[in-house]
Write a protein that binds this DNA or RNA. Structure first.
Length: 268
DNA sequence: ATGGTGGTTAGACCA
């Protein structure tokens, strides 16, 4: 029986709880993974999300910044969180759930954005982004991590392919699409043989975005987007992939997040 | 080359 998993950088779950409800009513994902929840766990709107039909949850937040959550209609277990680069900054939460009877580890990640200057010497935020990628890549590469199938979702803050950005040439020097980041992301992907579940369905020569800046006058007309939000699966799950959708119209909703939900269906 | 918008939270900081 099919399972749909959504990932969405919500940019404040408290401010946009009604937007979450609207998306849930429309897309009915079984599992909803959020980033940038921007709240401590005590003030996470858990009751509202339960009322939407999500009784199971992993929440891992802090005051004002970052924060990840996994909200599920299906039971989850083995809830864990990880911190990287010696910071308790709430960017990684993991749960176990069943996909077609098989136990799968689901990782929800919010990778650091990296600041404006793509130079780790001049810009500590960019150095942090690269270090974060190196640490999680080494961790995912450990053999014991690869004993069971995995799904990795989140705002990875990197658009890896030429057509994951509106202009490859103009963004080669812009944080999120620089060769050094793209190379690091490829290493992370290779660490456990992850397959890009969205590009599995959309050819690499088609433009595909999940984020549009707030600063554009008319995001839809200008369409200078980037694909920063991803869903990856390990090879055992590739045969179960049933479809992928990037919910672009959500960007046009009232008081939208700058990211839209990305959804993958697993199972017939 | 610059500044453009938004969220958190009360002056910056982050995206």
């Amino acid at each position: 029986m099919p399972l749909t998993i959504a990932t969405w950088n919500i940019n404040s779950v408290r401010l946009r709880i009604d937007t979450v409800a609207r998306f849930v009513a429309e897309a009915q994902p079984d599992v909803l993974c959020l980033q940038e929840t921007k709240t401590i766990d005590e003030t996470f709107p858990a009751e509202a999300i339960e009322a939407m039909g999500y009784p199971y949850r992993m929440i891992h937040g802090m005051k004002g910044y970052n924060g990840v959550a996994i909200l599920s209609r299906v039971p989850i277990s083995d809830i864990t969180t990880n911190s990287w680069c010696d910071r308790q900054d709430c960017r990684h939460g993991t749960v176990r759930l069943a996909v077609g009877g098989t136990a799968v580890e689901l990782h929800n990640l919010y990778i650091p954005a990296g600041g404006d200057i793509p130079d780790p010497v001049a810009n500590e935020k960019f150095a942090h982004k690269l270090r974060f990628l190196d640490e999680i890549t080494a961790w995912f590469a450990e053999a014991k991590r690869r004993e069971r199938p995995m799904i990795l979702v989140g705002d990875l803050n990197i658009a890896p392919l030429e057509h994951d950005v509106w202009s490859h040439k103009q963004l080669l020097g812009v944080v999120s699409h620089t060769p050094v980041e793209v190379d690091r992301l490829a290493q992370l992907q290779a660490s456990a043989g992850f397959v890009d579940a969205v590009r599995h369905f959309v050819p690499a020569d088609q433009k595909l975005y999940s984020w549009w800046s707030y600063r554009a006058k008319d995001w839809n007309a200008v369409d200078r987007g980037r694909r920063l939000d991803h869903i990856w699966v390990t090879p055992e799950l590739v045969g179960d992939l049933g479809g992928a959708t990037i919910h672009r119209p959500v960007r046009g909703w009232e008081r939208a997040s700058d990211h839209v939900p990305v959804v993958v269906r697993l199972g017939a």
